[in-house]
Design a binder for these strands. Structure first.
Lengths: 367, 367
DNA sequence: AATTATTTGTGCGTATGTATC
DNA sequence: AGATACATACGCACAAATAAT
C-alpha cells in the first residue's frame, strides 16, 4: 500500500472517478479492460472488479457483457427513480385525460412512470404538490400552472427545483415572470384571432367576447380577439367583453350574458373562452328564446368531446391534446438527458386550427 | 446450477431476503457467519460475500467488521414511498378519468400520490407494468385487470406482490381464480337484469343482447340479461346474443347487427354491453333507415358522458365512477393499515341504478 | 494484559461460462 | 471460428476488528 495507506481498489476507484469527473474520460468512452487495468496497476483482476463495481453502483460507469466497460452517459447523476411527476389543474374533465394520455405514451416508451397530481386550480394545492414532489425523488416534472396570470407567490419552490436540478416543463399556461423556462403551449393569441376573424368574415358586426381573467390562455385569446376586431375595422369596446375567474366559471358568464340580453344589448356573435363556456352560453341564450346560430353565432375553443357531440355542433379551435402531452414529455426527456452545456429550445408553440361546424351562420347579404 | 438456472449468489440472496421479509429473521438478528453460510450452501465464501453485498446495498443487512452481519434495524419498516400504483386498461376514455379522479381524491387526502400506468387491455403490458411496480417501491396497488375472463397467465406476479406484502385491490373486473382477493365492482349481473327487465316491462318481446366476451363484466351482464328474460317467461335464444372481444369492438357488433337486420331478423329492443356500443349500434340502425326508439329501443351501460349528451339520450345503468374509485382507494388504505391478524371484507359490491332517458319506447298496447 | 478463536475485509490466482465483434 | 471482455465461481492467504478466555 504505497498510496497513503488506502486500499488498492479504493485507489483505482478514485483514480478512475477523477478522470470521469475531470472530463478526461467522456461519457460513452470505453475504459481499459479489466485485464489491462490489472496489469497497469499491478493488482489482480478481482481487485479491479471491486473498484469497477463501486463505480457502477454509483452510476459513473456501465459494464456491458462481452463489449467492455463504458463511462455512463449520465455520469455523476443519480440513477433516477424512473418517476416523473405530472401536475395538472384537473384530472377527469375536458382535455386533461387526452393530454395525460399523450404524456404517458411517450414516457412509458422511455421507461418512465408518471406520478399524477392535480391542483384543482388552487395555488395552495400547487404549493403542496411541489413540496411533496421535492420530498420524493422524481426525475422530472411536467406542470400546468394554476391561475398563471396571477403573480407567482411560490417562486421559491421552483428555485428549489432548479437547485436540485430537477428539470421541469410547463404546459398550457406559463408564469409570465418565468418565460425563459421550458414550456409548451398553443398559440392562444392566434386561436383567439382565428375564431374572431371567422365571425367577421361571415359578416358579424357585434361580437361579444367571454374570457377567463386568471390564466395566460385567457389573456392571449383576448389579445387575438382584439387584433382581429381592429384588423376588421372595428374599434374595441370593453363593454363587449365579459371577464370571469375560475371560481366564477359556472355562474358569472351566463348571468352577465343573460342580463345583457335582457337589457337589449345587440349581439350577433359570441367568442367563448372554451367549449364548456360555449355550451353554457348556448343554454342561456336558448332559454331566452334566441336561437343558435340563426340569431347569434357562438364559437368554442379546444375542440373537446362536447364540441363534437353536444346539442349544437360547435365551431371551435382544434386542440391537439395528445400531441401537446407528447411534446411536453419529449421536451422533458431532452432536458433530463441534456448535457448542461448545450441547451435545447425552451419554448415550443403549437399552431391552432379552426374547426368549422354548425354554431355560426353566414350573415353576409350578397353572395 | 441446480436451482432453476439462477446463479448461486442469487439463490442465496433470495433465500436470505425471504427470511428477512417473512420475519423469520428479525431486525437486529445476527446472520450465520460467511463461513457457516458457505458450508451450509456448499458454495465458496466468495460467493456468499457477493450475495451479502447485494443485500447490504439494498439495505436489508449491515455488516460489522469483526462482529458479524446483522439484519438491518430499518429493514422491515421502510418508511414507505407514499406512492400507490394505479393500473387501468385505458386512461383517457370513457369512465376512467372519473374513476381515477375518485382514487386520487381519497389517496391525496391521506397523503399518498398515485403512479399511473395503463395496459391498453393487453396482458403483456399488464405483466410489464407489474414487473415495473415490483421494482419501484410502492405502498399499494389498485388494478383493473385486463381481459379478466381469460385465464390468468401471470399469476406468479401477483404471488410476488403477496410475498412482498404489497396490498392490492382489483376494480371493475377480477380474475375468477382470485376471487378471494380484495376487489370492488358493480353488481353487473343486477345491472344486466335491470335494463332487460325494463325493456320487458315496456312490452318488448324480441330483445337482442350485445356483450363483451373477454371480461367478467360482460359475462355478468349477460347473466342478468338471461335471468330477466327467463323470469319474464321468454326462453333463451343464443341467436339473439352477439358476443365480441376487445379487439373486435369497433367493427364486429355493428357488422353482425347490420347483417341480422338486413336478413330481416325481428328485433324491438337491444341491450348493449356499454354506452359506446349502444352509440355504435344506434348509428348502424339509423343507417338502415330504422329509427330509435320508435322501432327499436336501445339501452346502454355506464351512464357516461356520451349517454347524456349524444344524439339520442340513452337509457342506461348509472356507474358511480368516482365513488367506485374512492371505495377502491379506501379499501386499499384499510389493507395498508391493517394488522395482519384482522382481515377486512374483501369484496365490496356497488348496486347499480337504472337511468331512464329517451332511447326506449313503451310498446304496450293498453295503457 | 495477553492470547486465541471468530468474523469481516482485502487481495491473489485460476477456471469456466457467455456475450460481442 | 477465434479473440476479446465481462460474469460467475472456487480456493487460499492474510489483515483488522471483536469477543471471550
Amino acid at each position: 500500500m504505497s498510496d497513503s495507506g488506502k486500499t488498492k481498489y479504493f485507489v483505482l476507484m478514485e483514480e478512475l472517478k477523477k478522470d470521469i469527473i475531470s472530463g478526461e474520460k467522456k461519457p460513452g468512452d470505453r475504459l481499459p479492460s479489466e485485464n489491462q487495468l490489472s496489469q497497469a496497476f499491478h493488482i489482480s483482476r478481482h481487485t479491479v472488479r471491486k473498484a469497477l463495481s463501486i463505480l457502477e453502483q454509483e452510476g459513473y460507469i456501465e459494464a456491458e457483457h462481452g463489449r467492455g466497460t463504458f463511462v455512463s452517459r449520465k455520469a455523476g447523476r443519480k440513477k433516477g427513480s424512473g418517476n416523473i411527476a405530472v401536475i395538472t389543474t384537473y384530472l377527469s374533465d375536458y382535455i386533461f385525460p387526452r393530454l395525460i394520455q399523450g404524456i404517458d405514451r411517450v414516457l412509458t416508451e422511455n421507461g418512465y412512470s408518471i406520478i399524477l397530481k392535480n391542483t384543482g386550480n388552487s395555488r395552495l394545492k400547487e404549493s403542496r404538490c411541489l413540496e411533496e414532489i421535492l420530498e420524493k425523488d422524481v426525475d422530472g416534472l411536467i406542470i400546468e400552472p394554476s391561475k398563471s396570470e396571477i403573480l407567482c407567490g411560490h417562486r421559491g419552490l421552483y428555485d428549489k427545483l432548479d437547485f436540485y436540478k430537477i428539470p421541469y416543463v410547463f404546459i398550457q399556461g406559463y408564469y409570465t415572470q418565468m418565460k425563459s423556462k421550458p414550456h409548451i403551449r398553443l398559440d392562444d393569441c392566434m386561436g383567439g384571432y382565428l375564431v374572431t376573424k371567422y365571425l367577421i368574415d361571415l359578416g358579424h358586426e357585434h361580437i361579444l367576447g367571454i374570457f377567463k381573467a386568471d390564466d395566460s390562455q385567457g389573456r392571449d385569446r383576448h389579445k387575438g380577439f382584439v387584433k382581429a376586431l381592429q384588423e376588421g375595422g372595428f374599434s374595441y369596446d370593453p363593454d363587449m367583453v365579459i371577464w370571469y375567474h375560475t371560481e366564477d366559471r359556472s355562474v358569472k358568464p351566463s348571468q352577465v350574458l343573460k342580463i345583457m340580453l335582457e337589457e337589449g344589448a345587440f349581439v350577433d356573435g359570441i367568442v367563448c373562452y372554451n367549449d364548456q363556456i360555449a355550451f353554457e352560453v348556448i343554454k342561456t341564450i336558448e332559454k331566452e328564446g334566441i336561437s343558435v346560430p340563426e340569431e347569434i353565432s357562438v364559437t368554442g375553443y379546444d375542440n373537446s368531446f362536447i364540441a363534437e357531440n353536444g346539442m349544437v355542433k360547435l365551431t371551435t379551435i382544434a386542440h391537439p391534446q395528445e400531441r401537446l402531452g407528447a411534446m411536453a414529455a419529449e421536451l422533458l426527456l431532452e432536458k433530463i438527458n441534456e448535457i448542461p452545456d448545450e441547451e435545447s429550445q425552451v419554448e415550443r408553440v403549437l399552431k391552432p386550427k379552426l374547426v368549422i361546424r354548425e354554431s355560426c351562420k353566414d350573415r353576409r347579404k350578397n353572395r
